[in-house]
Design a binder for these strands. Structure first.
Lengths: 333, 333
DNA sequence: TTGAAAGCGCTAACAG
DNA sequence: CTGTTAGCGCTTTCAA
């Protein structure tokens, strides 16, 4: 379209009276350059307001200096802290960040053609189930650096994963409910089915029950928030506490409980997972588990960069979670 | 690092028994190609699982096919719907999306070097005050396509802007407060000072007062939420309604009012602007103005793409806002 | 309708 | 320490 008369490396070289190779050297700090020449080049660069052309650089070096983030969609409470961590991480390591949502691609019948791949990024961060397993496998087999965020690796592939201690966090929370607050009939409301996190949280829940000799009751296990609670109550099931797989679900559950005239925590206790920002502002404030989403994101970038640069990275990083006790579980606060 | 043996255009050409020029033609639908050859090429492309290399393409065509988004930081209620709109828009038009935060750059004394520019994107979306005015001017003078989101153009430059009807929205809201709810002593709490939106909202507020013959009282005008309200009350000022420049501010104000033992809306009405997700869940639910953030973002992309492709775009697009009446202003709901 | 060839701006051997 | 040169993979005249 319009033509931006940018200075090229040749212009800089000419102005500094050196070859382009030398300019390239000072640009990339590769190879020795006498400090006098270096200064001269530096000056020329500044005078011409020169910035290397990303595409040319990428073509020659076979590096894009870009990290891609793939997720299903932009939304949810996870998203913001996660992106913040990723952005900070990529920048810190000198990478650009390309973002891409896949929700418009899935299930359209057409062969999904992912605009993010080895052709425009040096590595990919894959959030939960945003990418087909087949595509993950293809990329991994092509030796393309991949780090999975909040999901585990396809069987037998051990692609590096970064996530939070879902199982242990849930275990601790339910332990607390049983030991400290004396609840025994604890329902579990799973979050959206596809979320792997939810699965691990359920495992933690089951572990806690088992550890306390409470047998698992399928009637106390549902999927969803508002509707699940409504149905639960209609079925005449009456737990003394409800553990929701995530805070969003807890919000729906809370609304349903209120609609049924039940008081939280007097009639029934309610707890969630994630500690999303509103959790503390709910009425009553929600007991939950804080997950270090931003830190996990940063860590994922760190591993990806390591993978890109050295071909190695931790296979699994689990960040610790923290119990956040608030009134909804019957605590004094 | 690792070498991904990707197929190149030459491989495709060889397999299809044509020249690379022809492959390029079918790839870009530029120039005539007999349907037989086209099919042959297409087949070869699929068989080799070929994807053109972005950098090579960019270098040759002097286009990056990428749009950059610059913002100060990732956060705030604006962010998510805005990014969603931008991502959808860029994808729709076939562009990749590069994201960059500037908050780490500003005020470091060093000459800010923005990693997003004419060297790695075809155009830039600039959110509020994320970019120095000097840099905006430089880019604009270099004919680089720029669209400003939620901010106006530097004087005399008329760079295309997309934002929402802040002034009119505020005007309507305050009109409603006065006409329908009978309030007369209405305070205005400005949001964070740097936000241009806040300025226009104040203008709308003043207009409404003036139109109803209510003289503007400086004592009713503050900056901030919680603290501003606390100080207001300490000063013995007692408005019958408070209009907050944004919902975040309203949340702080609400907390302060409750802390002072004042009931909303019985003792004092409270309204905000933005209709952020929690607004409806506040206690009482917050009357506010809904701003079509996502639509504005999409529109901005649309204009930027137009600017990139045709060098022209609307100079100013103002998206209409909508009054959202809830209990906090004394309405029945 | 197709092919040959000249770059796009830069990096990275390889010489000196 | 510095320069020469051959590409990187693709688009795009210009001829055929």
């Amino acid at each position: 379209m319009t033509d931006f008369s940018r200075a090229t490396i040749a212009d800089v070289a000419e102005r500094a009276g050196v070859s382009i190779a030398t300019v390239s050297r000072v640009l990339n700090k590769t190879g020795q350059v006498s400090s006098v020449t270096a200064t001269r080049v530096q000056t020329a660069i500044e005078e011409l307001n020169f910035t290397p052309h990303a595409a040319a650089r990428g073509l020659a070096s076979r590096k894009t200096n870009t990290i891609g983030l793939i997720l299903r969609e932009i939304g949810g409470e996870f998203f913001q802290p996660m992106l913040r961590g990723i952005e900070a991480g990529t920048r810190e390591h000198g990478y650009d960040l390309l973002i891409h949502c896949t929700h418009r691609i899935h299930g359209q019948g057409l062969p999904p053609h992912y605009p993010l791949s080895e052709h425009n990024s040096d590595g990919l961060l894959v959030f939960t189930d945003s990418l087909d397993e087949a595509e993950i496998i293809r990329l991994h087999h092509a030796q393309f650096p991949l780090v999975l965020l909040h999901r585990s690796s396809p069987d037998g592939l051990d692609i590096p994963c970064v996530t939070v201690e879902n199982k242990l966090g849930a275990r601790r929370l339910v332990d607390y409910l049983i030991e400290e607050r004396g609840y025994h009939r604890i329902a579990f409301l799973a979050g959206p089915e596809d979320a792997e996190d939810s699965h691990w949280r359920e495992m933690g829940y089951r572990d806690a029950l088992e550890a306390h000799g409470i047998s698992f009751d399928p009637a106390l296990m549902r999927v969803g928030g508002f509707r699940a609670v409504t149905e639960l109550l209609e079925d005449g099931v009456r737990p003394d506490a409800i553990f929701c797989g995530d805070d969003d679900t807890a919000i729906g559950a809370l609304a349903a409980l209120k609609a049924s005239g039940l008081r939280v925590p007097e009639d029934i206790a309610l707890v969630g997972f994630d500690d999303i920002p509103v959790a503390r502002h709910l009425n009553p404030p929600l007991t939950t588990v804080r997950a270090p989403i931003e830190t996990a994101a940063r860590e994922a970038v760190q591993q990806l960069v390591r993978l890109i640069r050295t071909s190695e990275a931790e296979k699994l990083i689990l960040l610790p979670t923290e119990l956040v006790i608030r009134r909804s579980c019957g605590a004094a606060g």
